Computed example of a mutant assay.
Amino acid sequence: MSDLRLVIFDVDGTLVDSQGDIVGSMSRAFAALGKPAPARENVLSIVGLSLDVAMQRLAPEASLGEQIDLVDAYKQAYQDLRAAKGSVESSPLYLGARQVLDALRAQPYTLLGVATGKSRRGLDSLIAGHALEGFFVTEQVADHHPSKPHPSMIEAAMAETGVDAAQTVMIGDTSFDMSMARAAGVRGIGVSWGYHGREKLANAEIIIDRFEELLPVLGQMLG
């Protein structure tokens, strides 16, 4: 059995607070098609899903063509906002996130990964903006997987790193993350500072309220 352990992070709502740009971009996308913008709470409820699935939920009455147009308009609006403000202001790291990532990266037997509904382009921009190059040995993005909560992202991360389910943990802020963890047979740690309330994190093994709680929790889970 390998001594390696794999710690996988969701991104939006877990590592970074991007809700302002997500809600703003969604409003711009719907306006571009002459549609009323969905309520803020509805937009935040779909964060983590792949955009095609998200639009099906936000605009179920729209045709498939309109949903595709909404996806394209959202991507463009998000890119525009990120270009105008930069990743650090557009999607700031949550308090304590960088310190915990630094500490985990320094552990010789810990591998870090991400599993996100972002595109490859979006994740690359975020990593570059926060100078996180080299932190994550496995990066699973929406371009290559079914939407969460399908376990594909976690399964691919384990396959890439050679770490089994018993030594893998998924950390996220949404029910989609915790359901994905359960479907993949790994432990899930929910975070309360993101976009789904604690009541939606029922599949989490434990819920933490501050980033500094993560290191001792991982120690208890994985040794």
Results as ranks from 00 to 15, higher is better:
residue 169 V to N: 08
residue 197 G to E: 11
residue 102 D to C: 04
residue 177 D to W: 14
residue 192 S to D: 13
residue 148 K to T: 00
residue 58 L to D: 00
residue 155 E to S: 01
residue 78 Y to K: 03
residue 19 Q to W: 14
residue 41 E to G: 06
residue 171 I to H: 07
residue 35 K to D: 08
residue 79 Q to E: 11
residue 21 D to P: 05
residue 198 R to Q: 12
residue 68 I to C: 06
residue 17 D to K: 14
residue 149 P to V: 04
residue 134 G to N: 03
residue 14 T to H: 05
residue 28 R to V: 08
residue 3 D to E: 14
residue 86 G to F: 00
residue 182 R to T: 13
residue 81 L to K: 01
residue 197 G to Q: 11
residue 83 A to L: 04
residue 95 L to Q: 12
residue 79 Q to F: 08
residue 104 L to E: 11
residue 199 E to N: 12
residue 138 T to E: 00
residue 215 L to F: 11
residue 87 S to C: 03
residue 46 I to C: 07
residue 6 L to I: 08
residue 111 L to H: 12
residue 82 R to N: 10
residue 88 V to R: 14
residue 154 I to W: 00
residue 155 E to T: 08
residue 157 A to C: 02
residue 97 A to L: 06
residue 64 L to D: 13
residue 123 L to I: 09
residue 10 D to C: 06
residue 195 Y to K: 11
residue 33 L to T: 02
residue 104 L to R: 13
residue 96 G to V: 02
residue 181 A to L: 15
residue 131 A to P: 00
residue 120 R to C: 09
residue 153 M to R: 04
residue 10 D to K: 11
residue 113 G to E: 05
residue 191 V to R: 02
residue 209 D to L: 06
residue 157 A to W: 04
residue 27 S to P: 00
residue 181 A to D: 13
residue 149 P to I: 01
residue 161 T to F: 06
residue 165 A to D: 09
residue 174 T to R: 15
residue 70 L to R: 12
residue 36 P to Y: 03
residue 51 L to D: 11
residue 98 R to W: 06
residue 186 V to M: 10
residue 149 P to E: 03
residue 27 S to M: 06
residue 101 L to V: 11
residue 171 I to M: 13
residue 200 K to T: 12
residue 25 S to V: 03
residue 7 V to A: 00
residue 138 T to P: 02
residue 15 L to W: 05
residue 31 A to G: 15
residue 99 Q to C: 04
residue 152 S to D: 13
residue 92 P to C: 12
residue 206 I to A: 12
residue 166 A to R: 14
residue 24 G to I: 05
residue 155 E to L: 13
residue 22 I to Y: 08
residue 87 S to G: 01
residue 75 K to I: 11
residue 151 P to M: 07
residue 152 S to A: 14
residue 148 K to H: 00
residue 28 R to A: 15
residue 205 E to S: 14
residue 95 L to K: 14
residue 52 D to P: 05
residue 190 G to M: 13
residue 128 A to M: 08
residue 172 G to W: 14
residue 144 H to G: 00
residue 206 I to N: 06
residue 183 A to I: 09
residue 223 G to I: 04
residue 167 Q to E: 03
residue 25 S to I: 06
residue 92 P to S: 09
residue 64 L to Y: 09
residue 190 G to L: 10
residue 206 I to E: 14
residue 33 L to H: 08
residue 41 E to A: 14
residue 119 S to D: 03
